[in-house]
Simulated assay, not measured.
Amino acid sequence: MPPEEVTVTVSRKGPQPLDARPSKLEVLAGDRFGIAIENEGSSAHVHCRITGELGDYLSIDQSNHYVEANSDAYISLRAPDVDRELEGTLAISTGYGATTVYVGLAVTAAPEEIEVDETLGIPAGGSSGSGGGGRFVQPTTGGSAGRTRSRNRAATGEIDRTTLAVTLVGVVAIGVAVVSASVVGGSWGFLAVLAVAAAVAVAGWLAYTA
């Protein structure tokens, strides 16, 4: 892309012997721009200078140019590296100041580069290569509830097995108590059966509620 430039025409046909286009030029800090002088008539001295705030940061080394008849000249400039906007004026004159035109100049700070973390585009568990081996992790809803249900199922299975074991032991104990009561006889045997049954019931309830 060619640099931005101001085109100055000298001895142009018409009432205006000196013309400059555009009327304002804006460039980025650190970029190059230029002044293209096109002489359409007889030889002439063209004087260029920069005024205003921008003139404190940028100057033209060879401000006075002698341009042969029907020839061109070019002045190359580089905008200063600044972090804020600077404005000034390019004054172009010929005929020892008899005719002067002005072009507004503005230098704006270059936009800051934003660094992007390349890992942001890598799928979870994979890489950014073309193999496509990575996979995205699909978030799940109700994760804590699912884990709670799993623990409840595990706990329920454990309680069921414990309750079954206590029940079997209780049945055997009651059977032994009944046989013992029939052998011993009397109220003592009956009370022994009741005591064993009560103990089995309490043990089963504790096992269920644990």
Rank of each mutant, 00 (worst) to 15 (best):
V193P: 02
G126P: 00
P2N: 11
G186M: 01
A69H: 07
D31W: 02
R147N: 00
G55M: 00
W205S: 12
V183R: 06
N39I: 06
Y96T: 14
A177L: 03
S76Y: 01
S59R: 09
L120G: 03
E85L: 10
R12N: 05
S59F: 02
L164M: 12
G55D: 06
V101S: 08
L90A: 02
P123R: 14
T7S: 11
A124K: 10
E26H: 04
L105M: 03
G157A: 14
D61E: 15
S71W: 09
G189N: 01
E112A: 07
P22C: 06
L58E: 09
V103S: 05
R21P: 03
G14E: 07
I114M: 08
V46C: 04
A154C: 01
R84L: 08
A155W: 12
R151P: 03
A199N: 06
E26F: 05
S76W: 03
A197S: 13
A69M: 06
D160Q: 13
Q16F: 11
R151K: 12
P80L: 06
V116P: 04
V178S: 03
R32T: 02
V179P: 04
T94R: 02
H47K: 14
S128R: 11
P17G: 15
G142D: 06
V169R: 13
G52Y: 02
I159Y: 07
A198R: 02
R153A: 08
A73H: 12
V196G: 00
T7F: 06
R161I: 06
H45F: 12
A173H: 00
G157I: 09
S71N: 15
A207T: 01
R78T: 11
A155E: 13
R151N: 13
R151C: 04
G157M: 12
G189I: 02
R84F: 04
D81N: 13
I35F: 02
L90P: 03
S128G: 14
V202R: 09
N64W: 08
E38I: 07
I114G: 02
E87C: 06
T100W: 10
L77K: 07
G55A: 08
V166Q: 04
A91V: 14
R151F: 09
T7E: 13
S130T: 14
G88C: 00
V116Q: 10
E4Y: 05
L58R: 02
G55Y: 05
S42M: 10
G185V: 02
L105D: 01
S43Y: 08
T162K: 13
E113R: 15
V184L: 00
P80N: 09
A145P: 06
V107I: 15
N152F: 07
G185H: 07
H47C: 07
S42W: 10
D31M: 10
L18T: 05
L164S: 15
I75N: 03
D31Y: 00
V172R: 10
W188G: 01
Y74A: 14
